[in-house]
Design a protein around this nucleic acid. Structure first.
Lengths: 191, 191
DNA sequence: CCTACCGATCGGTAGG
DNA sequence: CCTACCGATCGGTAGG
């Protein structure tokens, strides 16, 4: 990928985030990139390439993060903390791309959509493994693993809705807060 | 609203959920309703009416549910449990409309979009009130209320991603599980 | 990276 | 609820 391709991809991600994939036109992207619409086609095969590249690049980032966690750390609480931190960091460092990954993958054509869902399932499986580890260690409650993993991920994913790069908190502080919530909930521990 | 208008609205909600507001065309809706595209315009002023009606009708449902909770129940844990149950019930009873409410409101034109965001903020404020009540009662940890309320809501909202009407769990069971997670997290209470 | 252009589809209107 | 149609915009191609 050339640097110009990367520029165009990032412009497209911002627009896909702002307007949604379907409503963001090739002409919008061209305008933001200061070229004529037709010129974009020397850098891509089509609009869907931009969505495809975004979704799969993000999937790759999330997957290698969870694989690293499940390979290296072996106590569930530690794994969970690291997984939360990695997830939040990836979201914050790729805000537009992360939003596209979360919201716009539905517009992928087949067979890419099915492949994408497969990768996402693999990532969720990584979180289920951590939950299972915690249960085995006697640290976590016995819960419906599938729902627990999805609920954990959902509370992480919502970060993109309220996080602003110029906000007061950094990734570590946000991850810490979310980790504490996921582990102990709202209730005071003394009760 | 006539019964035919209601039928068309529900058809549109299913399509907006499935393809997204922008990608679902008036022709798609007409086809699903077994009429010619032009015929729809005797039941609506335009496509955006359908989005508008969906978003504001759902906002009304959520708001009256949280108002009821904050009016009647006065212990935070009880309020939270009721709010979770109400939220999940509304999601499950209006699955397509709820997804549109969550994902597609961005396509509202101004000034309706700003009005919508105002209503959503009011709803979130209802959850912040509950969190504050819990802190005042000494039941909840002192947390960032804004982030806590959003994190709670996000873990509830993700239900629409995995809930299937023919699944084994009913609203009460799902709400119970989510309430327990929100209150106590993954960790065993004995630890 | 541009000019020039394509067929398809979009939301919507006129008139009945 | 229909037929007939509109101007605008869509993603994309040819050729340079």
């Amino acid at each position: 990928m050339t640097s110009r391709q990367k520029e165009i991809l990032e412009i497209a991600q911002d627009l896909f985030k702002e307007k949604g994939y379907s409503a963001a036109s090739v002409r919008d992207i061209a305008k933001a990139a200061n070229v004529e619409p037709a010129s974009l086609y020397s850098h891509m095969n089509g609009k869907e390439d931009l969505l495809d590249a975004t979704c799969f690049e993000m999937a790759r980032k999330f997957l290698s993060a969870i694989d690293e966690v499940n390979d290296i750390y072996f106590v569930a609480a530690q794994k969970l903390k690291m997984a939360v931190f990695n997830h939040v960091t990836i979201l914050m460092e790729n805000l537009s791309a992360a939003v596209v990954f979360q919201r716009e993958w539905r517009h992928l054509g087949e067979p890419r959509k099915s492949e994408f869902i497969g990768l996402r399932n693999k990532y969720e499986e990584g979180f289920r493994t951590i939950v299972q580890n915690g249960i085995d260690e006697g640290l976590f409650n016995e819960v419906d693993k599938k729902i627990a993993a999805l609920t954990v991920l959902s509370s992480l994913n919502w970060v993109v809705e309220w996080y602003r790069p110029d906000g007061a908190k950094n990734a570590e502080e946000i991850a810490e807060q979310l980790y504490n919530f996921i582990l102990t909930g709202l209730k005071k521990e003394s009760l």
